[in-house]
Simulated scan of single mutants.
Amino acid sequence: MRSLEINILGLVIPLGTMLFCYSMIIRTLQHCKNEKKSKAVRMVFAVVALFLGFWAPYNMVLFLETLVELEVLQDCTFERHLDYAIQATETLAFVHCCLNPVIYFFLGEKFRKYLVQLFKTCRGPFLPCQYCRLLQIYPPDTPSSSYTQSTGDHDLHDAL
């Protein structure tokens, strides 16, 4: 019966929540006079379709496992194939967790723009970007120390 609980908590409730929330978003978009609303609607459908495409097979296999546990289905070969199917569909379902950022990148114009801007502000693969402020990077022509007239103090900057 644990498989049935996973079906309800892992597919039915999230799918119901997604359908409700996204239908409210689509309803709001229908009242907008924006030329890009069709892109937003396509993104909503893509998110829901991918969720179903990646999680429904796993939940169907779990449902079949429930039928085996209830002894409705009894076949050793079927149970062995069901074990393989659980492993394969579970992997497929967990891959879905990595796909939402990809969906938003390819379909979301603002997300793509902000991500490109983030990479432009970063100075290298191992150096934090300018917003992190963990490590300040100065151009090579900057002296290693400077004198500020306002305080009369010397500011030392570590050269990288």
Rank of each mutant, 00 (worst) to 15 (best):
C132A: 15
V95N: 03
G53M: 03
F119V: 05
H96C: 13
M60I: 06
I137S: 09
V44Y: 01
Q117C: 15
V44T: 02
E90P: 00
H154D: 01
K110G: 00
C122L: 08
T89K: 08
F63K: 01
T89C: 12
R112W: 00
L64C: 07
E69Y: 09
N59D: 01
A88P: 00
G152L: 15
Q117N: 13
Q87C: 13
T28A: 14
F111A: 06
Y138H: 11
E109R: 14
L92E: 10
H154L: 14
K120S: 11
C21S: 14
S144K: 15
Y131E: 10
L134H: 10
Y147H: 13
Y138R: 07
Y84E: 02
V72N: 05
L118S: 14
L107D: 03
K33E: 11
S23R: 12
F94I: 01
G10S: 07
T66D: 12
H96F: 14
I137A: 04
M1N: 07
I137T: 11
V12A: 12
G53L: 04
L9T: 10
L70H: 05
H31C: 12
F78E: 01
C21E: 11
P57D: 11
C122N: 13
C76G: 06
Q87N: 14
N34A: 14
Y114P: 00
I8D: 00
N59Q: 12
S144L: 10
T77S: 05
Q136D: 10
V102H: 06
L127T: 15
K36L: 12
H31A: 15
V48H: 03
Q130P: 01
T91S: 05
A46Y: 02
P139L: 14
L29V: 03
N7S: 15
C32E: 11
L70E: 13
I103A: 03
Y114R: 09
S3P: 08
A93G: 09
L135H: 14
Y58I: 02
D155A: 15
P101H: 13
E65R: 07
V61W: 05
N59A: 05
I13A: 04
L50T: 06
T142A: 13
I8L: 04
V41D: 02
F119Q: 09
L19A: 08
K39C: 04
Y58C: 06
A88S: 13
P101K: 13
K39W: 01
C132R: 12
V116E: 09
L118T: 14
T77E: 04
I103R: 01
P128S: 08
Q149P: 04
V95T: 08
L15V: 11
H96P: 08
G53F: 03
I6D: 08
G53D: 03
L67R: 05
C132F: 15
Y147G: 03
R123G: 12
L67M: 05
R133Y: 15
L15T: 11
E5L: 08
